[in-house]
């Protein structure tokens, strides 16, 4: 009879060798350090981010000298004062915040039935179609999609041409607040559906059948069973959508016609148009602060949703 070892595939023996090698390099007494070693890349990444934030914090305390175009040597709170007192920044911040909240509400409203249908449909063809329709936009960047809307919604675009056929004169569909919100909703929808789908999958079909047998029609089944149980998914999706919308740059820039700036656009202007890195840094920090507070409030009110992961549901 041949040796049993010969019966194993070569890859197994290669693995054995690698394991022996690993054991020599990293003796088992170090085993407990392994998880920490694997955390290292993440720690380095976050560390760099923190380092960057510190630098931004430093820059935010300096003002631009327009006679030399250098940042001042000494620290001042002048930038913060400007941001907090000038109307312009309040307007832009208010627009971004309100926009991100509206976008989140509408996106969740649209994403929910989509995700529900995708998860619950007995037809695998329909489910595949919905998945493809969901992922397709991911392969088209948001800038390209925004330009697509320019073509579709422009004065000579498809929509206006269709309206023209029924005698409606061309109207301005672009370059206003609703257009920006529309673009953002369209951009966020796949994110929300992808966050919601696992949460809905986790609700057993049987619960809905049970609710029906206990006397609840579909409206009340939805209201009292499906909705409360999908809360983790809604919170997770809402958080992703609200933060992505709040910090978005391209959609307001392209669909806003220059008059619908969000905070990110104002930051861009400071860094790249007026070369005022101090003010830009200040605005960046304010955005981080507003975003964090928003997320914190949601955590406090609704819990962390699917983002809580390991935590048991209370």
């Amino acid at each position: 009879m041949r040796t049993p070892r010969a019966a194993y595939p070569v890859t197994w023996r290669v693995m054995d060798m690698l394991e022996r090698l690993a054991a020599a390099v990293w003796p088992s007494s170090f085993q407990r350090g392994l998880p920490y070693l694997m955390l290292l890349p993440a720690i380095v990444l976050v560390g760099l981010l923190v380092l960057g934030l510190v630098q931004i914090g430093d820059t935010s305390l300096r003002v631009l000298d327009t006679s030399t175009f250098l940042m001042s040597e000494d620290y001042t709170l002048a930038n913060y004062q400007r941001v907090l007192t000038e109307n312009f920044f309040a307007t832009v911040a208010g627009r971004s915040l309100m926009g991100s909240l509206i976008v989140t509400a509408i996106t969740l409203l649209f994403a929910f039935p989509y995700a529900y249908l995708m998860v619950r449909t007995p037809s695998s063809a329909l489910r595949k179609f919905l998945l493809v329709a969901l992922f397709l936009p991911f392969f088209i960047g948001q800038v390209v999609r925004a330009y697509g809307w320019l073509i579709i919604l422009g004065n000579q675009g498809m929509v206006n041409e269709a309206l023209g056929l029924v005698g409606v004169p061309p109207m301005r569909l672009l370059y206003n607040y609703p257009a920006v919100l529309f673009g953002l909703v369209q951009y966020m929808l796949p994110f929300a559906v992808l966050m919601l789908a696992p949460a809905l999958t986790a609700i057993p079909n049987e619960l809905e059948a049970a609710a029906a047998s206990l006397g609840a029609g579909w409206v009340r089944t939805f209201r009292y069973v499906v909705l409360p149980l999908s809360r983790p998914g809604l919170v997770g999706a809402g958080l992703v959508v609200v933060t992505l919308s709040l910090t978005d740059f391209a959609i307001p820039a392209i669909l806003g016609g220059g008059t619908q700036d969000f905070i990110a656009n104002a930051i861009y202007d400071q860094f790249f148009r007026t070369s005022d890195q101090g003010l830009g840094a200040t605005l960046s920090l304010m955005l981080v602060a507003v975003g964090s507070i928003l997320v914190g409030v949601v955590f406090m009110l609704f819990g962390a949703g699917t983002l809580a992961m390991g935590e048991t549901r209370k």
Partner: peptide
């Protein structure tokens, strides 16, 4: 008659109790 219109109590295989 839909399920919620019938006066039938049902105990499901996996119980289907509402966890919330």
């Amino acid at each position: 008659v839909p399920p919620h219109g019938r006066a039938i109590g049902m105990v499901f295989q996996k119980l289907a109790l509402f966890p919330h």
